[in-house]
């Protein structure tokens, strides 16, 4: 699993699509935001991650459009 449980990542880039980008920004996913991965669904997709104190379910294909960098421990 790429997104290990409790691993913390930083948002580097957001998708180009205007609508999806703004939806993410509204949820608090801006460049520089930290995202902490929690549960993975039993079938491997989607995953739950915490952004600014709120939990969201992300489908992996949606996450792929966001540029993420894993924080060093």
């Amino acid at each position: 699993m790429k997104y290990e449980k409790n691993s913390i990542w930083t948002v580097m880039t957001l998708p180009e699509e205007e609508i999806f980008k703004t939806r993410l920004e509204n949820l608090g996913l801006t460049t520089g935001a930290r995202i902490t991965f929690k549960e993975t669904a039993p079938l491997g997709n989607p995953v739950i991650a915490v952004v600014r104190g709120t939990s969201y379910a992300f489908r992996l294909s949606a996450l792929e459009k966001i540029g993420l960098k894993r924080n060093e421990l």
Binding site: R23, L24, L27, P46, T54, A57, R59, S61
Partner: peptide, 10 residues
């Protein structure tokens, strides 16, 4: 449909 993002309440 690809961009599934949804809030999960406590």
């Amino acid at each position: 449909m690809q961009d599934f993002v949804m809030e999960i309440p406590a």
